Simulated assay, not measured.
Amino acid sequence: MTAFAYIGAALAEIAGCFAFWAWLRLDRSPLWLLPGVASLCLFAYLLTLVDADNAGRSYAAYGGVYIASALVWLWVAEGVRPDRWDLIGAAICISGAAIILWGPRSPA
């Protein structure tokens, strides 16, 4: 469930942010903001579904997923293929996210 929540949250956040980008940078209609805000609300909700004891840890681990998802967006939506440095950086971020989320913890 955690992976699906993170992937869904990443897609929702990127789509919501892109709606604002389209409005401000691509001269699209302000109506783009309506689905953008809805998408950002969905993003926030989906992060609450992550199986973690602390919100901060959940958000920190999400950062790595977001970076990898943003590179997928770059490729699929913008038509720019990530280079090897993008891929290496994303792999490091995903590894860090996994360590943050699933690393062994001492009882509090």
Rank of each mutant, 00 (worst) to 15 (best):
D83S: 00
Y59G: 07
G56I: 05
Y62D: 01
A44K: 15
A61F: 01
Y66H: 07
G79H: 14
A55T: 11
G56T: 00
L71I: 12
G79D: 10
A77S: 09
S69W: 07
A52P: 04
Y62A: 07
L42P: 02
L47E: 00
V80P: 03
Y45H: 11
I67H: 03
V72R: 00
A61P: 00
A70V: 09
N54F: 10
L71G: 07
A52V: 01
S58L: 07
L42K: 02
Y59N: 02
E78I: 04
S69F: 09
L47R: 04
L71H: 07
A52N: 11
V72W: 04
L49K: 12
V72G: 05
A68R: 04
Y45N: 03
R84D: 09
A60Y: 03
Y45I: 12
W75K: 11
V80I: 13
L42Q: 06
L47T: 05
V50S: 02
V50F: 05
L42E: 07
A60M: 14
W85M: 12
V65K: 03
I67F: 15
R81P: 00
L42M: 14
A77W: 06
D86S: 03
A77D: 07
A70Q: 11
L49G: 03
A70T: 14
G89A: 14
L49F: 12
L47M: 13
D51I: 01
S58F: 00
D83I: 08
V80F: 08
G64S: 06
W73L: 08
Y59M: 14
D53Q: 12
W75M: 10
F43K: 03
P82Y: 11
V65F: 07
S69M: 15
T48M: 04
W75L: 06
Y45M: 09
P82N: 14
V65M: 11
L71F: 08
Y62I: 09
A77V: 09
I67N: 01
C41D: 10
G63R: 04
G56S: 15
T48K: 05
Y45R: 09
A44Y: 11
V72C: 11
A52F: 02
W73I: 07
A44D: 15
V65R: 05
L42A: 15
E78A: 10
Y59K: 08
G56Y: 08
W75C: 10
G89T: 08
L87D: 02
R84W: 14
C41T: 13
V76Y: 09
V76L: 13
Y59E: 06
D51A: 11
V72L: 14
I88Q: 02
G63F: 04
C41Y: 12
A60I: 04
N54S: 11
V50T: 00
L49R: 12
A77T: 07
V80G: 06
L87H: 06
L87M: 15
G64P: 01
R81K: 09
L71R: 10
N54E: 15
V80R: 12
A68V: 06
R84F: 06
V80L: 04
A60V: 08
I88N: 07
L74T: 03
A61L: 04
T48C: 05
V72H: 02
G63M: 13
D86T: 00
D83G: 14
L87T: 00
V76E: 10
W85F: 13
W73R: 01
R81N: 05
Y62P: 00
I88H: 00
G63H: 02
W75A: 12
D83P: 01
